[in-house]
């Protein structure tokens, strides 16, 4: 009973998060401008991180948590670098 409940709700959440990732990816591909793509990429990162957390609950291991932590860190750094690039046209000056 509990097993079925958890497994179905986690599956539903994963499908919803997959759809959310699809929306973000659509924005990355469509643009129309560079800042729209950056926002889409940032959302894609966060959605992917949440998807990994649900995978962790499904498999019952803490391994996915580490991956989610790394994604959270790298997503922030890359979005900040991209925003800097949009502002000045170069990352390191």
């Amino acid at each position: 009973m509990t097993e079925a409940l958890l497994s179905w709700s986690l599956l539903a959440a994963q499908i919803l998060l997959g759809l959310a990732m699809f929306c973000a990816a659509w924005r990355v591909l469509r643009g129309p401008r560079a800042q729209d793509r950056v926002i889409g990429l940032d959302t894609l990162y966060v959605n992917g991180m949440m998807l990994l957390l649900t995978f962790g609950m499904r498999s019952g291991t803490a391994l996915y948590f580490e991956a989610a932590l790394v994604i959270a860190l790298l997503g922030f750094v890359s979005t900040a670098a991209l925003a800097k690039f949009l502002m000045r046209g170069e990352v390191i000056e």
């Binding site: 929306c23 959302t43 966060v46 959605n47």
Partner: peptide, 20 residues
């Protein structure tokens, strides 16, 4: 746990839908 996971996923989906 099931309710929280679903609520989180629905909110995130609505947010991403807003991007479109």
């Amino acid at each position: 746990v099931a309710l929280l996971v679903l609520a989180g996923a629905v909110l995130t989906l609505i947010g991403s839908l807003g991007l479109i």
